[in-house]
Design a protein around this nucleic acid. Sequence first.
DNA 1: TGCCATTAAATTGTATGCAATTTATTATTC
DNA 2: GAATAATAAATTGCATACAATTTAATGGCA
Lengths: 153, 153
Amino acid sequence: MQPNEYMKLEHQLCFAFYTCSREMMKLYRPLLSPLGLTYTQYITLLSLWEQDGVTVKELGAKLFLDSGTLTPLLKKLEAMGLITRTRDKADERSVIIELTAKGQDLREQAAEVPTKLYAGTNVRIEDIQAMHEHIQSFLRKIGEVTGGREAER
Amino acid sequence: MQPNEYMKLEHQLCFAFYTCSREMMKLYRPLLSPLGLTYTQYITLLSLWEQDGVTVKELGAKLFLDSGTLTPLLKKLEAMGLITRTRDKADERSVIIELTAKGQDLREQAAEVPTKLYAGTNVRIEDIQAMHEHIQSFLRKIGEVTGGREAER
DNA sequence: TGCCATTAAATTGTATGCAATTTATTATTC
DNA sequence: GAATAATAAATTGCATACAATTTAATGGCA
């Protein structure tokens, strides 16, 4: 590769991630909009549907987000009646997030989102598997440096 | 895969892209901060260093960004003395973006960013190539649906 | 030529992201 | 056991993203 080839936009891996992420969110929008959810709210609920009763800190470790992003987002979900935010009696520094009945019910409607997502695209599900694994392996490697998901240990 | 396995966070490809994108930006930050640039400003300049004298529309097609994001960002780069924004004489609807001498000079300092990026990580450059190509192929496929980079045809 | 559809930026409003700081609480140490 | 360090959320300030709308200019057509 020529020296300044490295500076071309098309060779930037991060730009590919960045663009793929945002283009995929555009695939999600028509599926999430009827549920009244944004993409970030959706992945937050995905995490809570797997396990709720977690602290903001724990949720942030799973989503790679800090309180600066989560606090307003969780307040929004609370205002929508999907979750509750309660100070932990055992440690008043922590806030525990739990799903309401309404928040649990929403899971049923969201269940079809993953399967509908690639409808209309030429993407083959099989192709995604390998790529997904490579990306996750990559993420672990750079996470060692950026400190991403540090609370996971 | 179990039915509700599809709803697990770890199986969401978009979440992998989304997280990789943001974690990589954290790798960039210490390299770009001394140059006074954010990541979005950096990729905008990468594009302009390849070709300037382009309209906001053309730049947006390359970066997958619209005027809502680009206009304030370009005004910022203009305020920093790196670019000029000029109405196209031939078509007053368009604004043409050009690098200033200062903006061109910054390219030299930014030249070491791509090579320094993976320093300290366990990432093997060879591993990145294949993954990168798969991602770009994937992006083209979903772009057919989302309309991404529509002005490219 | 005048009207209307189209187009490019800019603007507006909402929702993130994240660094840095602040506040409140808990853990530690001397 | 009081002073200090550490921790978890919340807050603040700045920079995106993007849908939707607005403004200004151009193109097409009767």
